[in-house]
Design a protein around this nucleic acid. Structure first.
Length: 142
RNA sequence: ACUGCAGGCUACUCCAUCGCCUGGCCCCAAUCCCCUGAAGGGGGAGAAGGGGUUCGGGAGGAAAGUCCGGACAACGCAGAGCGCCACACCACCUAACGGGUGGGGUUCCGGUGUAAUACCGGGAUACAGAGCGUGUCACAGAAAAUUACCGCCUUCGGGUAAGGGUGAAAACGUGCGGUAAGAGCGCACGGCGUCCCCGGGUAACCGGGGAGGCGGAUAAACCUUGUGGGUUGAAAUGCCACGUACAUCCCGAUUCCGGCGGCGGGCCAUCCGUGGCCCAAAGCCGGAGCAAUGUUGCUCGCACUGUUGGCGGCCCCUGGGCGGCCAGUCGGGAGGGGUAGGCAGCUAGAGUUUGGCCGUGAGGCCAUCCCCAGAUAAAUGAUGGAGAUCCCGACUUGUCGGGAUUACAGAAUCCGGCUUAUUGGCUUGCAGUGUUU
RNA sequence: GGUCGGUUGGCCGAGUGGCUAGGCAGAGGUCUGCAAAACCUCGUACAGCGGUUCGACUCCGCUACCGACCU
C-alpha cells in the first residue's frame, strides 16, 4: 500500500542540496523531462530518494499552468518510483532527484508518464547493474 | 418579441480507484513520573514519528495589480515645528477611505417640439481658488497683458482701444445715441462675475429684485485656502534551537558644580573634660555640561544611558594648574563572518445563512443559524465512467453521430473598496420599434 | 509578502510642455586603380491605452514588460 504514497520525507526541500546538484550533480534528458541527480552522503530523512520538480517561469508565465504540470510530474513519479526503490534496497546514502520540465507546451499526462518511466529505466540501467558491483559503477562526484 | 444602454447573480454535477494538506479520535511506541520493590509488577502522562475499511474541512470573483483605506505589530513619547504626501460642489453611508449612495452645477448624445427658450430619457464629470503673488504662453499676429506700433482725431500739449483678422486665446456682444476722433461714456435687449435683500431647500444650489461692475488662458505649473496623515510594515514582531566571536579595525565622550557626610589634618581658645573656625578622603543625593539617540525625512524638546579606574610628563610650588597615555564603560561607523530551521503571530471575523423592521438609496437595527483553507521548494490532483448544458452535421423533428465543458486565473496576516483580465448561462431596470388584446 | 526605479531608431544614450540631440551600425554618393580612413546626404524612434492642456516624450491615471532593494 505504501508504495504509491508521496510524503514529506520524500520531498527535496534543502536549498543547499539543490544548489550543489547544479554544481556537482549529473543529468540527462528524456523529452519533455530532464533529470538532475546527486548522491547525498548524509541523508536528511530515511527515504532512499528525495524528489522535486521544477517548471520554468520563462516557459509558462501562468502560475496555474506551472502548478498543473508539477502535479502531473509528481503523479507520474508517485506511481512509478517503486521500481527504483526496489533496486535501492540496502544501499546507504540518499539520492537527490530534481526533474525539470523542458517542453514549451502543456503535454497530456500520458506523455509525461511515458517519459518518467523511461527516465527511471535509463537511470537504473546506467547506475544500477545487478547486485554486488553496484558501488564501483557510480560515477565519482566531480 | 427584438435592439440598445446600465447593472446584478453564477462559475458544471455525480460515482469508482489511487494520492496530497489540515483538525479531531483511536492504535503502536522511545522516554518520563508515581506506588511497591531483590529482580520485577501495577497505574498514569506521552514530544517527534508511524499506522488506521475512522470522522470532518480544503482556492477566487477576481485569490491578480498592490492603487487607496483600516485592523494588528514595532519604534522610549504617539511631543512640537518644518518638510513631504493625499484630498477638494453638497448632504449622507461607513471602523475608515481617494470608495459608495442620493442630490446640485457643467457638458455631451438621442427623441419630441418651437420663431426661440423648452420638455423627456440616458451618459460623462480630479467640479475649491486665476478681482493675492510668481512663472509660462511655440508658430502666426501690430500686440499674448498694463502695453508700444500703424491708423483715426487734434487747439500739436496730446487724446484714442472703432479699425489692423492672426491665433487655442486679444480689451462683454448687437443696435442706437454720443464725440474733434473715440470709448459701457449713456440707453435698449442679451451674456458673465462680485456684494446685498427676499422666497424655496439641511446644504450645494435654484427663482426673483437691487447696487456696483465687466482688461485672456493655464493650478493633472509653482502656489493660496481648507481638511487629513507620526513613521515603518508579517521578510513587522516575540520566543526556542543551531552557529561564529562579549572577535577585528576606525571615530567620539569619559568634564565640572552644589548638598549631606565626615576618614584625617591645620589654627585658636582652654577650667585639660573639651569647644570654636578652616581644609577635607570614601560613600550617598542632586544639578549643569559633553557624547550619542532623537519614534527607520530634517531640526528641537522631554525622558533614558555613559560620565569609572590606573600610570607617566611640564609649570608654579607643596597644594593646585596644564596637557597626555592605557584599561574599562557607553555611543556611532566600517569591512568581514555565521544562520537562513522550528513555534507563536495565523485564522471566530467591521464573519456567514435566513427572516422581519427602518431608509428613495448606499446602508442600519433586531432575531435566528453556522464554524467554513491555513500551505511554506509552498496542499485542493490524476485516471476512468455516467449525467447535464452548449456547438456542428444528418434527416424520420426528436433521435443518432462527432466535438467541447471551456474564459480569466491559484490563497500566503486578515478585512472594506478600487482597478485590470474574462467564457457561457440566468436575471433586473430604463428607452425605442413591432405585433396582439 | 513588501518598497522603489525604468522603458526614446538595429544598438548605446541626451532631452526645461512648443519640429526628439549625439555616437555606433546600415544605405547612397565624393575621393581611389580598388579598398580603408575622411567628408557629404539619407532612412528608421518617444512601450500601449485614456485624461488634463490650444498643444504631451515631458503632467496625471490604468495596463504591459524589464530591473533593483529588504532578513
Amino acid at each position: 500500500m505504501t508504495k504509491f504514497k508521496f510524503n514529506k520525507a520524500e520531498r527535496l526541500k534543502s536549498e543547499k542540496t539543490i544548489g550543489r546538484m547544479f554544481k556537482e550533480g549529473h543529468s540527462f534528458g528524456v523529452y519533455p523531462l530532464r533529470l538532475v541527480w546527486l548522491k547525498v552522503e548524509e541523508p536528511r530523512s530515511d527515504s532512499p530518494v528525495q524528489f522535486t520538480v521544477s517548471v520554468g517561469k520563462k516557459n509558462f508565465k501562468s502560475a496555474v499552468a506551472r502548478n498543473r504540470i508539477k502535479r502531473k510530474v509528481r503523479e507520474a513519479w508517485r506511481l512509478d518510483k517503486s521500481r527504483l526503490y526496489k533496486k535501492l534496497e540496502g544501499a546507504d546514502g540518499q539520492l537527490a532527484f530534481m526533474v525539470l520540465y523542458t517542453a514549451k507546451e502543456d503535454l497530456p499526462y500520458q506523455d509525461i508518464e511515458k517519459a518518467m518511466k523511461t527516465v527511471i529505466h535509463i537511470f537504473i540501467k546506467k547506475n544500477m547493474p545487478p547486485a554486488n558491483k553496484r558501488r564501483e559503477n557510480v560515477p565519482p562526484l566531480s
